[in-house]
Design a protein around this nucleic acid. Structure first.
Lengths: 193, 193, 193, 193
DNA sequence: GATGAATGAGGCTTCATTCAT
DNA sequence: TATGAATGAAGCCTCATTCAT
């Protein structure tokens, strides 16, 4: 599993052969098919697994950090720090979800897309809750703002994790909290519009 | 090879067979290999072609719209409008560059990455010029800000063009100028941050 | 192994996986190989089993029904009725022996062929006995007549049991005795020829 | 094609590998897939081809031999002679249709069954025409009689062509016309009932 | 220049059989 | 005896590329 995810992340779905996966896992080709019904299902399990963990980060982050209006920016920054740290701990997963997944077959692509839809939904909940708590003002078009917000976040996350060359081994000079703070500034001001 | 680009955009690099390409182009398999030395080279030509046009948009936009400090936001918005409109006119190109390209082989992926590096460079020039002209204040870390800015822009562009399911046929309810203005608000305040 | 025979009958030898067989039998894969040394041997045991029962029908039928010349047709019809009833009670066996068995591997095919050779021998004995008893006249070429006779019987049996589409679940509109009588008419007149 | 049919006839569908077929045909594996979309389609083309030729024999035979009542038996015998000669000239086809075809996959099996349904239909037409011409009396149950008749004919054909061991290389001691005459005797008397 | 038939390496998957427990 | 995970040989098929015409 771990090995497979790393291969997908580095070489992409189509350039990862089942023979690569089993070699990296130290089992035989036949054994692979005892645990996974197909290459496609392997990818989907990997994705669904990751989706659960990723969504959890957003939701946990939210529950932990809800507070007064004054805490807003730092609260946002903390959530983003969590997210960026999660991304850093799960580079292979993020590389597959953010970059390589869309090169796969339709079923796999759909699973990737659904992951990001869940991600956006989780964020939308956060923003709506903040509005209810009057931490940020009522917005004319929440969906659009959240849309842009999530675009900003995934965009930054991708660049921070993988750099300009989309390299899985890239290491950004910025720490998670640095990038999170900087991003939160964009976010907060942008959200307040 | 419009047809090839469309196929790459819709089905991805590996799921596009050169037999599909020649069928869509109305030539024979043999003829294809007279014009292109390989599938890989076809993709790279397509990408390099697109890179030139894309960079031109940023540079033209910049030259056209530089002006007084007051014009800053609307100037930004106009550049983004140009960019979004270009993206809309060249959906297949953008789908390949933003989404599907990273699923291809290393050489092709590198060409895609280089495109976005050029894109970011062009933006960096714009921001530096704005600083020189004192349209925006000196920034502590231009590279980081521009990085985030470009992340924001490509993120929004992708979502606006292809929606949550990364669908080439998606059509956003927002016009280019609407989304550009909204994005510019994020951008400007973030940059000034 | 009722279950195995049913699978062989329905899906054929090669389309029956031993994993199917063990699933249908409620044992584990390993257990199967404790009882049977191979898939091939399973099939052969099934066939040999069936051969014994099938031959018995012919011989019993013969012994039971030998009688005076006047009884000849009805005696034949009774034997055929027995045979058709046996076939009906053992559809899976007959499907494997008559239809699916020849799609298997050489060793299995040979076992099937031997079954029908035994079958024909048993019939030949019947006819010779009838000649000895002067129930039917001396024939110029007993072997040929019996050959045709057996062809007729297996042909009718197959069609009656499995219909035009060779469907294991086919159910003929004719009763065993109806078809037996009709066949005996062909047989008797043909034999007397 | 020829080579493939021979392999199917001798080894059966599942024991004939595409690699065997291409070896026997002197082309590469890839070339096979230029001409046939799959192994299954190859078999089906072979079968449909054979069906056309086989049906033609019955229909030609019929047209050629229709005549007065007195010619009935010899007319039947001539048709059967044609059929047996055709079978002898096309042993591989007949082996696949009569014996090995039912060991294949469902789609292929269905094609085989359809062939014999066509065959029986062609015979039914012959019998009905003979009744119209008053060459044979009106029968109580034409379908049943024809059913038995066809069972008889395919049964004899199979045995004559391939012998007791279902061996493609078997050679019967009887000539086509000998076996045809003998069978016609069964047939005619049986039909007249 | 153009065609389309031919190639062959290599991928995914199946499944009878084995083996450690 | 019984289990079920593990194996690996081998099969079908794909597809980028080449080549004779």
């Amino acid at each position: 599993m771990k090995a497979a995810l790393e291969l997908f992340a580095r070489k992409g779905y189509h350039n990862t052969k089942i023979s690569d996966v089993v070699k990296a896992s130290g089992v035989s080709q036949g054994t692979f098919y005892w645990y996974f019904e197909s290459k496609e299902q392997l990818a989907i399990r990997l994705i669904d697994n990751g989706k659960a963990k990723l969504t959890q980060v957003i939701e946990q982050g939210y529950r932990k950090h809800a507070g007064t209006v004054d805490d807003m920016i730092s609260s946002s920054a903390r959530l983003l720090t969590d997210l960026f740290e999660f991304g850093h701990q799960n580079r292979d997963l993020m590389a597959f979800l953010l970059i390589k997944g869309q090169g796969a077959d339709p079923t796999v692509r759909e699973a990737v897309s659904q992951t990001w839809i869940s991600f956006e939904d989780a964020f939308k909940k956060n923003v709506n809750r903040a509005i209810e708590l009057e931490m940020i003002p009522k917005l004319a078009d929440v969906a659009l703002r959240v849309n842009i917000l999530v675009s900003l976040i995934t965009g930054v996350l991708t660049k921070w994790l993988f750099g300009p060359m989309q390299d899985v081994d890239y290491h950004s000079p910025y720490t998670p909290s640095q990038i999170a703070e900087e991003t939160a500034r964009f976010e907060f001001r942008g959200l307040l519009g």
